[in-house]
């Protein structure tokens, strides 16, 4: 049982399974995201303090969540690659990065648009905002290293090491910026403390939207890995032709 999970790390097996899975995941991503955003946009009341701007939460929070989850997934995939050398996992880390960087950008931009009426400024050097900007830079560096290296295995190894070291430093930066500045940003939107928690009418569509963003991530990573496997096969064919 325990070893069966690793079967999917075989590229051929992965292509078969992911090919069958992909239409369902992509369809679910589309339906759930649309449901969450439509519910949030059209069928939620205004907040008594924030007015209609509260509706931005339904794109802001899911994007911010996926920005962090994508990095965590890259970290796990890099570890699996370094320890067990499954090619699919290295490619999954590579495919996750563009999704993660876009999610970070969405979180930053929608947050800026939200901050303008609420805090009177597009940008503040608040710990959370700053940490996200730094995360954005980490994504850029990681993707640039992938793009700079020609040999796929060398690239996978070096980006894997960078991802491990980068994760430690990203975490340290998160605590360092807390130390450095006091925040404007509210606490966790989904805090378990009852007093701080959002009302249920906002939380339900938010959960739906978060699930939708998660599915979008999974679908895009699946497509990305399939593309990378094909690109690799193409590379192998070119090499063989050159040898012949």
């Amino acid at each position: 049982m325990a070893s069966s999970m690793w079967e999917y790390a075989n590229p051929t097996r992965f292509m078969q399974v992911s090919g069958r899975l992909l239409p369902w995941v992509a369809g679910a991503a589309l339906v759930v995201t649309a449901a969450g955003l439509i519910w949030g946009f059209f069928f939620t009341p205004d907040d008594f303090r924030q007015g209609a701007t509260v509706k931005i939460v339904f794109v802001h929070v899911p994007a911010a969540m996926m920005a962090i989850n994508a990095w965590v997934m890259m970290l796990v995939a890099s570890l699996i690659w370094i320890v067990r050398r499954h090619h699919v996992s290295a490619l999954a880390a590579k495919a996750a990065a563009p999704v993660g960087v876009t999610m970070t950008a969405i979180a930053l931009i929608s947050g800026g648009i939200w901050g303008q009426p609420m805090w009177g400024t597009w940008w503040a050097w608040d710990p959370r905002l700053t940490a996200f900007l730094i995360l954005f830079l980490f994504y850029l560096g990681y993707m640039a290293l992938w793009a700079a290296l020609d040999d796929p295995d060398t690239a996978a190894d070096l980006t894997g090491v960078l991802c491990l070291v980068g994760s430690v430093f990203a975490l340290m930066s998160r605590y360092a910026v807390n130390f450095w500045s006091q925040g404007l940003h509210q606490g966790a939107s989904l805090s378990v403390q009852p007093g701080e928690r959002m009302d249920i009418v906002f939380r339900m569509p938010l959960y739906v939207s978060m699930t939708g963003f998660g599915l979008i991530f999974v679908a895009l990573v699946l497509i990305g890995v399939r593309t990378e496997i094909r690109a690799r096969r193409m590379r192998a064919l070119v090499m063989r032709e050159r040898m012949a």
Binding site: G166, A176, F179
Partner: peptide, 29 residues
């Protein structure tokens, strides 16, 4: 990380500068 690249200088700054963040913050503080 970048030693094998012919034009690694710019990439090197992009990789290293985010890693410098905690040191910079505590140092200036």
């Amino acid at each position: 990380l970048t030693v094998g690249l012919r034009r690694g200088g710019l990439l090197l700054s992009l990789l290293v500068l985010p890693l410098y963040v905690p040191t910079l913050i505590y140092g200036t503080e």
